[in-house]
Design a protein around this nucleic acid. Structure first.
Lengths: 236, 236
DNA sequence: GTCCGGGTGTGCTTCTCGTCACATTCGCGA
DNA sequence: TCGCGAATGTGACGAGAAGCACACCCGGAC
């Protein structure tokens, strides 16, 4: 970190994170360096918007560090959080499928460091490395599966079930320690938007889990005490 | 129709439908013929299962004629209908992204005629016609958008709203006449599974729409009387 | 014709969860 | 250190929809 963050010059740290992602790993050492030089890294403060739903989309993004939420907004202003992303996750893939506008907004929750690769550069890379295209398709498959699962959860699980499942997922994907959800900046309103519920309802559901000793809350840190019971509650 | 339905020999009628699909249209006259010969067409009675969720998936399918539903089943046996498909629609695309098992089952609602193209054949075609790959990606983009919309609907619309929206979509996509949902074989249970609700609740919501003169029901035919009001009810 | 089964229309009860309203606490900046 | 706004914890109320039960209707099999 030399202060000139976002400059295409400090390639090494960018390449280091890209090497951790399933998508870019297939490029190999050289390809990753090329990719890192082909894009631009930028830093964002919490609460900033990386791009808006509806914007023209011309780049693929990789979250080098930090935490962001994927927010879908309806015509009436209702918001649902489709996903939380942390280090090594990619977003903005939809722009590469067709030229269509961004289907959701990306909002930072914590200070974040984001790498953006123009569509044209990525297509070049794909031409050179067919494995990249394969991996890209695998990503899309995963996304479709996750979305259908989310729809099924909304249809079949009650609020407590959805919340239990969400906590397990958050701890698994973004938790620093096993079985702990410690995500500064993530409010109960965010949790509510992730499971399609209201903030007061989420609060009550959390308290209910606390009283049954399935979780413990201190400040913004949620510790999962009874994983088995939570999984049962979440329909797993 | 010569009785030997499904034989790879009667290429012309298959090619005719393929030419109507956005995906295969890009192949041009010759490519479509090749594609039609590379796959297999089969006929199904109502209620049959074309493939099961969990099956290994090694082919892309095109619905040449008929009506099928895409059913996702949870571990507990709860079912949600993700989509209805009619003539010219494709399904089973997920198998081509990765080698993963089918993510949903396909069940015929009416007598259906289905074309199946093995994964390997499709990949060959894509190598020859790069436009096919582009079109395929566009399809996936559309699918992702539809799924996020579905999730948002489940989160924000009440049962009546989801039902209104569904009726508009069904009339638009599968209706024989403008503003009419005439889908023999499609039960109220199916409607319920499409919007994540119970069958009695759907019935009541339908009756409510009837009493307010937004729709009319005679037998299995639903006529949409007040499109504007339905759209409003469905959050459009 | 008669039986049977699946699909449809309704009534009733229960409970979840949205809505509104408010007190309390936390965290950050002046 | 104080103060203010945001985030959190609760209470009361009502609407919506699930669950359960049952009557009716219609079409096909025998």
């Amino acid at each position: 970190m030399n202060g000139r963050s976002g400059a295409p010059h400090d390639v090494q740290p960018v390449a280091a994170v890209l090497a951790e992602t399933p998508l870019f790993r297939v490029l190999g050492e050289g390809g990753i360096q090329t990719a890192a030089r082909a894009g631009l890294a930028r830093r964002y403060r919490p609460g900033q918007i990386i791009f808006h739903q509806g914007d023209p989309g011309e780049s693929l993004h990789v979250l080098l560090d930090g935490l962001v939420k994927v927010v879908f907004t309806t015509e009436h202003g209702d918001e649902i959080v489709l996903n939380m992303l942390s280090r090594g996750d990619t977003f903005g893939e939809m722009a590469l499928l067709d030229g269509s506008p961004r289907s959701a907004s990306i909002v930072t929750v914590r200070p974040s460091w984001v790498f953006a690769l123009p569509r044209a550069r990525l297509l070049e890379l794909m031409r050179e490395h067919p494995g990249l295209a394969d991996e890209f398709l695998r990503m899309l498959g995963h996304m479709v599966r996750r979305l259908t699962g989310q729809a099924a959860d909304l249809a079949f699980l009650d609020l407590g079930g959805r919340l239990s499942k969400l906590l397990l997922q958050l701890a698994d994907k973004h938790g620093s320690t096993e079985g702990v959800v410690d995500l500064p900046g993530l409010t109960q309103s965010d949790l509510a938007a992730l499971i399609g519920a209201t903030r007061p309802a989420v609060n009550r559901a959390l308290q209910s889990l606390v009283s049954r000793k399935l979780i413990a809350i201190e400040g913004r840190t949620i510790t999962l005490l009874d994983l088995a019971a939570l999984r049962r509650r979440g329909g797993l």
